[in-house]
């Protein structure tokens, strides 16, 4: 009887350890990790880059991972750049994967803007992936892919 209890509690300890490790793994996952790009978005990014090498990082597309209403979804795009004459972002583009049209917006920035940070609101037809691409004055392009889950869609309903 005592032995049986010992086995059960050992199992329970193992289970507790595993679930604690699992929770920690979820918590430790970086919030702004780049998702693996879908082929369609990767192609659109390639078109925008026009031959330039695109790398992940520097640009951040901030959007809620779970969107209740696709009609108006706040997004913030920020780029790690001093935005001076010597080093600045010249253009930022946002593409979507599953709206009827893949363009969301193209932003043009100048050193006068002082900070590479833009906030706006967009429409999302369904759960999908989004990408923000930033082009710097040195010609380099930087990407951030984000997956979004949408519970109420936009565009098609009345």
């Amino acid at each position: 009887m005592a032995r049986e209890l010992e086995v059960v509690s050992a199992q329970r300890r193992r289970l507790l350890r595993m679930s604690a490790a699992g929770t920690l793994a979820i918590v430790l996952r970086p919030l702004h990790a780049n998702e693996p790009p879908t082929p369609l978005l990767a192609d659109l990014v390639k078109g925008f880059a026009a031959g330039a090498v695109t790398r992940e990082g520097r640009v951040k597309l901030d959007i809620a991972p779970l969107v209740e209403n696709g009609n108006s979804v706040p997004i913030v795009i920020s780029v790690d750049s001093p935005q001076t004459d010597a080093s600045h972002v010249t253009a930022i583009t946002v593409f979507n994967e599953k709206n009827p049209q893949h363009d969301v917006a193209q932003f043009t920035l100048t050193p006068l803007a002082g900070r590479a940070r833009i906030a706006t609101r967009i429409r999302l037809a369904t759960s999908q992936q989004l990408v923000a691409v930033a082009r710097l004055n040195d010609g380099s392009c930087w990407t951030h892919y984000v997956n979004v889950v949408v519970t109420v869609a936009s565009c098609t309903e009345e």
């Binding site: 009609n71 108006s72 979804v73 935005q83 979507n96 709206n99 009827p100 049209q101 363009d103 969301v104 917006a105 193209q106 932003f107 043009t108 920035l109 100048t110 050193p111 006068l112 803007a113 002082g114 900070r115 940070r117 833009i118 906030a119 706006t120 609101r121 967009i122 429409r123 999302l124 565009c155």
Partner: peptide, 25 residues
């Protein structure tokens, strides 16, 4: 004067477009 910021908008922009950006005075 000089261009500070510009945007080309598409159908995926929400109604009553809102744009926030910055300017170095």
């Amino acid at each position: 004067g000089d261009l500070v910021f510009a945007t080309t908008l598409h159908a995926a922009m929400a109604a009553n477009p809102s744009l926030q950006f910055h300017f170095r005075a």
